[in-house]
């Protein structure tokens, strides 16, 4: 097993973990963290499966990942701008109903 395949497998696991967190959490910031970690997993799969040349990794995969990183930060920034507006307007940054909460993930 080469290390490139190891990174690709880690990427696949990160996608699955991020998906689980995305579904389990209701806090918007936590969902954004899960979104970004899923993105990192996808990038790891992209580069891990591209044929490498030792000296430098596949330039097409690198360019795609660079594009992806910039688009991800734009999406995160936009989502947080919307969440800030929601918060300012008195809305709740958690998507579930307050009475059904049992975890205390945004305390302290």
């Amino acid at each position: 097993m080469t290390s490139a395949l190891g990174y690709a497998i880690a990427g696949a696991l990160l996608v699955a973990m991020g998906l689980a967190a995305m579904l389990l959490h209701h806090h918007l910031v936590r969902r954004l963290i899960a979104f970004n970690i899923m993105g990192g997993g996808v990038f790891l799969v992209l580069l891990g499966l591209a044929p490498g040349h030792g000296e430098q990794a596949d330039p097409v995969a690198q360019a795609l990942i660079l594009t992806g990183i910039v688009v991800a930060v734009a999406a995160t920034g936009l989502a947080l701008a919307l969440a800030r507006r929601l918060h300012q307007a008195g809305g709740d940054v958690r998507l579930d109903h307050p009475s059904s909460r049992e975890d205390d993930d945004d305390q302290k």
Partner: peptide
């Protein structure tokens, strides 16, 4: 480690730095 220097630079600056700062502010 995978010889992707361009991506490493962008990830450290944008992925960790900028996104991290945005999320910290939101938290």
């Amino acid at each position: 480690r995978q010889a992707a220097a361009d991506v490493a630079l962008a990830e450290a600056a944008i992925g960790a730095g900028l996104t991290g700062a945005l999320l910290l502010d939101a938290a």
